[in-house]
Design a protein around this nucleic acid. Sequence first.
DNA 1: AGCAAGGTTATCATAGATGATAACTTCACA
DNA 2: TGTGAAGTTATCATCTATGATAACCTTGCT
Lengths: 94, 94
Amino acid sequence: MSLQALKQRALKNPDVKSEYEKLENEFHFIDQLIGMRIKAGLTQQQVAEKMHTQKSNISRLERGNANPNWSTLSKYAQACGFELTLTVQRSSST
Amino acid sequence: MSLQALKQRALKNPDVKSEYEKLENEFHFIDQLIGMRIKAGLTQQQVAEKMHTQKSNISRLERGNANPNWSTLSKYAQACGFELTLTVQRSSST
DNA sequence: AGCAAGGTTATCATAGATGATAACTTCACA
DNA sequence: TGTGAAGTTATCATCTATGATAACCTTGCT
């Protein structure tokens, strides 16, 4: 599934759309996950192998309401040939 | 043998290198966590209250070999008045 | 039609992250 | 002195992310 497709599908749900602002962060980093894999030209199966896990777990990570730990994020990125950095900025609102 | 030389020699071992980078990453983002709190001028107790948890858990997060999930990272950042972004860059080596 | 690749979903077990409480050390200060 | 604030450590319970397996759905191809 493409990034656009993911977003568009999510936004078709009105509730989801109303919650979009709140969840934007989560959608964002899931998009980044998928984006890394797509840019790397890898299948879930291939990423799973590099992470020494199963493709179903990769699917869950990309589709479920993921709350992965840092280790999982790093491994996924590394499997796709990327590195992660945690960027911090002062919160504008809230 | 100097420390530098020792370090460089050690890093030629791929296993050691990956371990080292892993540790470096963890140190890095833990530093960022503490940095956020210090810049915000907050105590662990205060952050704990904003996160609706205990100060001992904050200490563990900052001192233990932490592998927090995204939700915990976000809450911590928000409690300190910051927002987190996952930054992705192509892996140079590996 | 059959077949395989890519992805999704369901389920279970287990490891480990988090929540909660208590006791402890330092340090600063009255 | 001692009193409180700040942080650390230990421990236990609970929650949940992850690992693993299997069945399923599309889609594209022959």
